[in-house]
């Protein structure tokens, strides 16, 4: 096959389209990265040129190839304390607002979805224990869900590679983990602290019982959904949240590409989305 090349105009057209769809903007200095991945997909799909490939991406009824592109243009890796600024935002900003407005002593409820192998849910627990000054005043429930039962079992076991815990301060690793084989297992108390459940966000019956949450973490998932599924997931979160509850998306994701149900809230640590009290 002849060499496939991406011209500057091709790059500009692709960059604009990708930005419009995902909110991710590639600076010109990322061009090599982008071109390389485009060429990879063009060859993989058997398209003969960027033009043919781009037409397929744009007009393919299923949208499958666009999703493949999103997969290779983004890196999704879970590890402890990933996107830590949001946990900071939780303990410094969101929780104080939630507790200030709370009229009962019922537990504060946090939903982490997708659970993947549990790094995010356990990170939240550790962060709360280490950094939330009001941890003794309130009960907290953390529920973490995934569609994949195998991965839920792994989350419940809580065994992690050294790579996955590399961003944890050593004293926290010592405090909350015990060595296990070549890696580490999270301590029993923490394993008991999180409830792992199976849920398919696209199944209305599955999600119906998920209600009354104060905060939902859903990071780096919706970007891999098509438009309709994404909207549906946003509606699910809306129903699952209490009024004034918060949704946290991944740092490269924006609600601006998903739904207008939520208000944009700025805290010192960053932007999160909030369910309004009334929806006019």
């Amino acid at each position: 096959m002849a060499d496939i090349s991406i011209s500057e105009q091709d790059f500009l057209i692709f960059r604009e389209y990708f930005y419009r769809k995902t909110g991710i903007h590639f600076e010109t200095n990322k061009r090599y990265f982008v071109d390389k991945r485009l060429v990879e997909r063009i060859k993989e799909t058997g398209a003969t040129s960027f033009q043919n490939y781009f037409r397929m991406v744009r007009f393919e009824a299923s949208g499958t190839e666009f999703q493949s592109l999103v997969n290779i243009m983004t890196v999704n890796e879970s590890y402890f304390f990933r996107e830590e600024y949001q946990f900071k935002c939780l303990v410094n900003s969101m929780l104080s607002e939630i507790t200030k407005n709370k009229t009962d002593k019922a537990p504060i409820r946090i939903w982490s979805v997708p659970s993947s192998s549990g790094e995010e849910a356990y990170s939240i627990v550790i962060y709360l224990l280490e950094h939330w000054p009001d941890i003794d005043k309130w009960d907290i429930e953390i529920i973490s869900s995934d569609i994949d039962t195998d991965i839920l079992n792994r989350a419940r076991q809580g065994i992690y590679s050294p790579r996955s815990v590399q961003h944890l301060p050593p004293e926290l690793l010592k405090k909350y983990f015990k060595p296990s084989g070549a890696g580490y297992q999270i301590c029993d108390d923490l394993r008991q602290a999180v409830e792992f459940t199976r849920v398919n966000l696209m199944d209305v019956d599955d999600v119906r019982a998920y209600r009354g949450f104060d905060v939902i973490f859903c990071r780096n998932l919706l970007i891999y959904f098509d438009d309709v599924s994404r909207r549906q997931a946003a509606e699910t979160f809306f129903d699952a949240l209490k009024p004034n509850g918060f949704v946290c998306l991944g740092h490269s994701e924006s609600m601006s590409r998903i739904s207008s149900l939520f208000k944009v809230r700025k805290f010192p640590e960053g932007i999160v989305y909030q369910k309004p009290e009334v929806n006019k």
Binding site: P107, R109, V125, L128, L129, I135, D136, W138, D139, I140, E141, I142, I143, D189, L190, Q192, A193, E195, T197, A209, Y210, G212
Partner: peptide, 12 residues
Amino acid sequence: MPIIKQVDSEIN
């Protein structure tokens, strides 16, 4: 640490 409770049967 027991501050963080197990959910009983909220999801039902």
